[in-house]
């Protein structure tokens, strides 16, 4: 009933013979129009008996509904009824257990999971490579792994690049924490290949050499990862832009701190961090640990800050809080 048959019917101008003589010197191909031609032939044959007017056909169609349609309708009804029944059951259960709506945290995790899954399956990220110097171990990676926990599993594998002759022994603790419960099958959602390479304080992150440029600096890597990670910990998604920008500037301070050369410079940067913290428990102000805390904590460990000499009282407390909530000794 569709296609050219709903138009005016014309008598064929040329009568095609049933069998066409095709040359046989070439490869034989299936006639792509054969099916269509066959259809037409059938129609031509059947049309003589059919009512030709379209309106008549439509009327006929409306009068007697197709059996398939009715069957489909019935099925839909049945499914809807089942769904309603299920909903009733659940409300009844909820009433019994006296629970409100589902906890929001779970929802969030689900979203993040599906989102990261998408990223991974689209083939954009197979594996993130982080090049780090043994002199500046990316402690933030360890912290991030603890922070995210099960909401986004980080699988980290460590390699030593040939330009590094030997890993310093103080990294053993780092290595054991970063690669624990990292099973062979890589069930984790985000795979990170950590390569020890002499890159100085410019820790590098490579996702795809074809499409991305290398991200340099540990705090920039943290920014990148926080966008990938669970939205709960993404500081840019917080409702207050002022908070986001304050954290950004904190991250920049960490960046400079890792590269500062003189003691004076270092002290002034630590002092500004002290001021940022003020009296609050965490850098972001709230009672939860954030990316900024991780960045500061990591850079303090890299430059080997002496808590007793360099830090204020609030800062020392903060350092303890961090280590406690990350379950890592500083």
């Amino acid at each position: 009933m569709n296609g050219p048959n709903t138009m005016y019917r014309m008598r064929p101008i040329i009568k095609l013979t049933e069998e066409l003589e095709l040359p046989k010197c070439m490869y034989r191909m299936k006639n792509i129009q054969q099916a269509y031609l066959n259809n037409r032939l059938e129609h031509q044959l059947s049309n003589e008996t059919r009512p030709t007017s379209i309106s008549e056909q439509v009327k006929k169609f409306l009068k007697c509904p197709l059996p398939e349609m009715t069957a489909l309708e019935n099925r839909q009804e049945a499914i809807l009824a089942q769904l309603a029944d299920l909903k009733n059951q659940i409300t009844a259960l909820r009433g019994q257990l006296k629970q409100s709506a589902a906890p929001p945290a779970v929802k969030e995790t689900n979203i993040s999971r599906s989102r990261t899954c998408n990223i991974l399956q689209n083939g954009v990220i197979h594996d993130i490579v982080i090049n780090a110097s043994p002199k500046y171990p990316p402690y933030s990676l360890v912290a991030l792994r603890r922070l995210w926990g099960d909401s986004l599993k980080l699988g980290v594998r460590c390699h030593i690049h040939s330009s590094v002759l030997q890993l310093p022994t103080n990294l053993e603790n780092f290595l054991s924490v970063i690669s624990d419960d990292c099973d062979q099958e890589r069930s984790s959602l985000l795979n990170i290949t950590l390569v020890w390479k002499d890159v100085g304080p410019d820790t590098e992150l490579v996702v795809s050499p074809m499409k991305h440029i290398t991200i340099k600096g540990e705090v920039n890597i943290l920014r990148y990862l926080s966008r990938l990670g669970p939205p709960r910990y993404n500081y840019e998604l917080s409702n207050d832009p002022a908070v986001s920008s304050r954290l950004d500037s904190l991250l920049d301070t960490c960046y400079s701190l890792a590269r500062c050369r003189t003691v004076k410079e270092r002290q002034s940067l630590i002092h500004s961090l002290n001021c940022c913290l003020g009296k609050s428990q965490f850098m972001a102000g709230g009672d939860g640990i954030s990316i900024a805390d991780i960045a500061v904590w990591s850079v303090f460990r890299q430059i080997k800050v002496e808590p007793l000499q360099d830090l204020s009282g609030a800062m020392k407390n903060w350092l303890q809080h961090c280590s406690q909530s990350l379950k890592l000794d500083s």
Binding site: G123, H126, H161, S162
Partner: peptide, 18 residues
Amino acid sequence: FKFLDPPLKLEFATAVAM
């Protein structure tokens, strides 16, 4: 010549994706 220790091990499917 550059290399990693332990050596980099990728699955064939990952290579195809790359």
